[in-house]
């Protein structure tokens, strides 16, 4: 007789198939970790921790999502978005732990970038939030905040690693009297451009190569496909604008971590 672990653990039948699928997906994760180890990419542990943490977070989120989606008070909704923004800044920091002062630069940037764009979108009624404020604003805010997190992390990572690798060029600029802002202008511009690139690609191939989650979800949820499609374009514009604002703020705030008040470079050379 085959041992039924799920029955033994008294897991309701309706969840067993789902859990089996989840466990089967771990084979894919194992393959991924083997590849990263083989290629020396060194993110294996992060993937494992991320999977465990992500699973717990998303399960908890799923359980409370019903209540969050039911929210109708805009102040409470913005409170939830603020919490998400703080968590995004914290996540950016923990993924860039070798770099000091990440949260000081990302937190205000993500909050200002994401929340201002959400506020304007709501004020101008660009999205029809009145029919279900929580249902519309929270997931859209999540996408906007998530993108701000990715972009601000990338800007900081680039600024820091460029300052390490191209110290002499940076100091050449400073030696000619450039401000830290002028000396890093090119790096900032490049990092924003490359941070926006994946989304620009998705934007360009919208509907042909990429079938975005928001639109699919709305169609599955019974929304008119035309409306869902237009919402997807709107969300992309929101993502770009919020990301741009957050990246610019983060880049300026992060200069304080790279230079002192005498405009001297304080970034240490790379460790061997």
């Amino acid at each position: 007789m085959q041992l039924d672990l799920f029955a033994l653990l008294q897991i309701p039948e309706q969840y067993t198939a789902m859990l089996q699928r989840y466990l089967a997906a771990m084979i894919l994760l194992a393959v991924l970790i083997i590849i990263t180890k083989w290629q020396g990419i060194g993110i294996g542990n992060k993937l494992i921790v991320g999977t465990i943490r992500g699973t717990i977070q998303i399960v908890l989120m799923a359980l409370i999502l019903v209540y969050i989606f039911a929210l109708s008070d805009l102040i409470v909704i913005f409170g939830v978005l603020t919490f998400m923004g703080v968590f995004a800044a914290y996540t950016a920091r923990s993924n860039l732990e070798r770099i000091p002062g990440v949260m000081r630069a990302t937190l205000p940037a993500i909050l200002v970038g994401a929340l201002s764009v959400m506020a304007v979108t709501i004020a101008l009624e660009i999205i029809d939030w009145r029919s279900g404020p929580g249902e519309f604003i929270i997931p859209m805010g999540g996408m906007v905040i998530g993108n701000c997190m990715v972009l601000t992390s990338l800007v900081i990572d680039r600024m820091w690693s460029n300052a390490q690798k191209q110290r002499s060029l940076l100091e050449t600029a400073l030696a000619l009297g450039a401000t830290p802002m002028q000396a890093t202008e090119l790096t900032i511009r490049e990092s924003i451009r490359s941070g926006l690139l994946p989304n620009l690609n998705r934007y360009a191939s919208l509907g042909i190569v990429s079938i975005p989650g928001l639109m699919s979800g709305m169609i599955i949820g019974g929304v008119n496909p035309l409306e869902a499609a237009l919402y997807q374009v709107i969300i992309f514009i929101m993502i770009f604008l919020a990301g741009m604002i957050a990246a610019l703020i983060t880049s300026r705030l992060f200069l304080r971590e790279m230079f002192n008040e005498r405009a001297q470079l304080t970034v240490p050379p790379p460790e061997l």
């Binding site: 400073l174 030696a175 000619l176 009297g177 450039a178 005498r262 405009a263 001297q264």
Partner: peptide
């Protein structure tokens, strides 16, 4: 710093 480095150039 900028004013100085404009005059004392390296």
């Amino acid at each position: 710093p900028q004013e100085l480095r404009r005059r004392v150039v390296m």
